[in-house]
Design a protein around this nucleic acid. Structure first.
Length: 434
RNA sequence: GUGGCCGUAGCUCAGCUGGUAGAGCAUCGGAUUGUGGCUCCGAUGGUCGCGGGUUCAAUCCCCGUCGGUCACCCCA
């Protein structure tokens, strides 16, 4: 292609296609929901030292192994566009010692993430997530409350067909023990496993449980359950989480094969999948879990328990119903004048500015073509009211006011114009603006 | 990274065994010298993704390439 295009898998969002407005409403809804749960928004850079993700997400994960956008900056430092949000937020929390001032921190974020995968429906190289994290509280009540936050946010934006799957991976010692048990189980069948799972066997045996490859299924079925490997403390924690979720009325199912793709999870993990079929093959709306070791692994001076989740905005929008936005009350000012009658044009611009200063959305077709073309433009822009200014109006101190819905038109004194418009606006709001 | 399908006007698409392109919508103008939507008339708009090959001749056939899309892997 001779003309420049957007990078593969990275998309424009144009006004007028309706998507931009949906994004804005979704983001507003997320901030609103988070606010009600006591979360504050944090913003971190799109780019970090690659090492941050290697250490947090894990060297042996798909994200780090083959999906990260990494490059060297001018100082020959290895950077990466962030593939997810948790690592950056934790880094920022450590760097700014936020837990020295507050014992518990509740953060939320929204923004672009990058993964160099082949795009498909609901999967893009630049995609966007909303997420929330709690630092400094190891109570199972946090797990339940944050899962509930995600769940009620979905319902709030009209997504009803989804399933919350939960599992517990246990703490560090459980994971180590379970890992050994898995290796012991799968190793004898090594040659029968899928090639992917063969390599997972040494590097990350938990991920074999995630496999959908038919060759792995028979061996998965007989694999030891993580539930049996949990310590008493892990088990008690998980039981509380389930209790609290039930008490909150948040539906969930326990899925012992749920392991998630990131290394930093401990104890509770969860995933939310769409069941409406709107997402195609990528049915995960998001997921998260507890990561009690991550602060320490990233160099915090003392351990900090943490819990968080992220949801994919593009996928939420695929799953959410498309709702009509209420039409705004909008005024168009039209000039009736010959092309060189600049005084009339100036009068139109002046009136428009006056209205805007009073909070009225006002548009002007500043090409000042024929009145017909200006009227057409006003109609295209869905103006509720058109104000016409020409020599007649200028001479009499009046403005011709036309209501586009009915075609009704009357002459209004400049002095009472704002009152008239305010009255119309109230009436439009009362009837729900057709 | 692997595979299927698809690239013709701004958009959605048609184009018959190869004879250098058409519709609808959109845009602009006119019918209506200061009045939108509906209708009618007209106009603008295309290196047929790009490169090569076969042919007298390629939008059409072949190869390559780029892009899109869906799926696999995995994930948001």
């Amino acid at each position: 292609m001779a003309t420049l295009q957007a990078v593969t898998g990275m998309n424009d969002l144009l006004p007028g296609d309706g998507q931009g407005a949906r994004w804005q409403r979704l983001e507003a809804a997320f901030r609103e929901t988070c606010g009600r749960y006591g979360f504050q928004e944090v913003r971190t850079p799109l780019c970090e030292y690659a090492e941050l993700f290697q250490r947090s997400v894990g060297e042996a994960t798909d994200i780090v192994e083959k999906e990260m956008y990494t490059f060297d900056d001018r100082g020959n430092r290895r950077l990466a566009l962030r593939p997810e949000g948790t690592a950056s937020a934790v880094r920022a929390a450590i760097e700014h010692s936020v837990l020295a001032r507050e014992t518990v921190v509740r953060w939320c974020y929204l923004g672009a993430m990058f993964r160099a995968e082949r795009p498909a429906k609901g999967r893009y190289r630049q995609f966007h997530q909303v997420g929330a994290e709690v630092y400094g509280d190891d109570s199972p009540a946090v797990d339940a409350e944050v899962i509930d936050l995600a769940s009620s946010f979905l319902q709030g934006i009209g997504i009803t067909k989804f399933t919350v799957r939960v599992n517990s991976l246990g703490g560090a010692e459980t994971r180590a023990r379970y890992r050994d048990a898995l290796i012991a189980h799968f190793a004898p069948h090594r040659d029968a496993l899928s090639p992917d799972s063969q390599s997972r066997l040494e590097r990350n045996p938990l991920r074999i449980l995630d496999s959908k490859d038919p060759r792995d299924l028979p061996f998965k079925a007989g694999a030891p359950s993580i539930v049996d490997a949990l310590t008493d403390e892990d088990r008690a924690h998980f039981e509380r989480v389930k209790e609290f979720l039930s008490a909150l009325g948040t539906p969930f199912v326990v899925d012992p094969s749920l392991v998630r793709g990131l290394d930093y999870y401990t104890r509770t993990v969860f995933e939310i999948v769409d069941t409406s079929g709107a997402l195609g093959a990528q049915d995960a709306l998001g997921g998260g879990g507890r990561y009690d070791q991550l602060f320490t692994e990233l160099g915090a001076s003392k351990p900090v328990p943490a819990f968080g989740f992220a949801l994919g905005i593009e996928r939420l929008l695929l799953a959410a119903p498309v709702t009509e936005e209420a039409k705004p009350f909008r005024v168009a000012v039209v000039a009736v004048a010959k092309p060189d009658e600049h005084a009339t044009h100036a009068g139109v611009l002046g009136l428009a500015r006056e209205l805007r200063m009073r909070g009225v959305e006002t548009v002007v077709d500043t090409r000042f073509g024929s009145m017909k073309s200006q009227m057409r433009r006003a109609n295209d822009l869905a103006a509720t009211v058109v104000l016409v200014i020409g020599s007649n109006e200028l001479a009499s101190g009046q403005v011709s006011m036309k209501l586009m819905a009915t075609g009704e038109q009357r002459s209004v004194a400049r002095a009472s114009l704002l009152d008239e418009l305010a009255q119309l606006q109230r009436a439009a709001a009362a009837t729900g603006a057709p």
